[in-house]
Design a protein around this nucleic acid. Sequence first.
DNA 1: TATTCCGATAGTGAC
DNA 2: GTCACTATCGGAATGAG
Lengths: 195, 195
Amino acid sequence: MSFRYALKPFITDPKRHSKDVLFYDDKVVLIRDKFPKSAIHLLLLPRGDLTTVAPAKLTKEQIDPLNEYINLAKEIASNEFYKIWKCKNNEKVKILALLHSAPSLNNLHIHIISDDFHSPSLKTKRHFNSFQSPFAIMIDEIPLDEEDMRRGRNYSESLLKRNMQLHGDDYAGKIKVVKQKLQSEFEAKWIRIIN
Amino acid sequence: MSFRYALKPFITDPKRHSKDVLFYDDKVVLIRDKFPKSAIHLLLLPRGDLTTVAPAKLTKEQIDPLNEYINLAKEIASNEFYKIWKCKNNEKVKILALLHSAPSLNNLHIHIISDDFHSPSLKTKRHFNSFQSPFAIMIDEIPLDEEDMRRGRNYSESLLKRNMQLHGDDYAGKIKVVKQKLQSEFEAKWIRIIN
DNA sequence: TATTCCGATAGTGAC
DNA sequence: GTCACTATCGGAATGAG
């Protein structure tokens, strides 16, 4: 089987992967991303026919029934985050729910991810842009407009190659600099809970 | 002093560098290249006013008096080569005399080099193209035509970035493949003399 | 185009 | 569109008693 179906075993048999599964029922499976791009990074996997739908083609009717699961997943992600990190100034962690406009894994998966992007697995400009450019389709953007260019694969891929932008600053392709910036921002806000 | 004058000490004081100097008189110094790009690679350094002339601007009147030195240098290079290598089929080693059209070292230097380009110091496409493209000005091409594009630095530099070509085959930028090819050709022809 | 160091970029293969 | 590996490509510094 191709790497493009790496998520399929979790959908078909969540019990077999209890170590990585945080929640499941007959509609969804919630797992930890194997290569987390933030301090907390989960994937919400619909189990039914939805698993074959392209993110850019999702309809309101398809996404609405998932909203309660998305909120649940955000809550679980938040709890997982607070198991490890404590805020220095009483702010709450911000959890995003989004889809990649041109994912490489074929089973539909919603990213549930904290907004820090501070992680050893975030290594490349593509990683960064897949969350910090319009390549990331926020859940509330669904359904995409009929003319949205992210329906086209070529345009979506071009978004991954563009210069990295953070807080309005252009970092070109300097991922090392971006990662240092993200790290110092994270460390300014969060402190690890010793356990 | 800038790296661009790395050859100057040899010209001004050849006695001080006897380990690297194979011949000198009041007109020239012949040294081993510090980063040889072939089995044998020497540099012939004119000592007088010629040391400041750009290779592409050399005149016939300037180069003619050097011809006997060039022949001597080729002879010395050949002898040095045969101290280490023996041909498997009685062919002679071919020694080239050439200049780089846009050298990075400012003192005029004529490369005296065997035509194998089999050396650990030949590492990059630029190295290869500096000898195996028109960037290499053969001694008998001097003086260059007035319209020769190699008089322009931009054009000369572009020659270093072009695809590598060997025996009419295009190797794109694949220096690893080119080096393997050069190595097998060298080993097919020459055998090291144990000493 | 001198080298060297570092980092960004690009192609490949995975079953 | 994934990751991991390898290799290629690209800029910057290089000294200075």
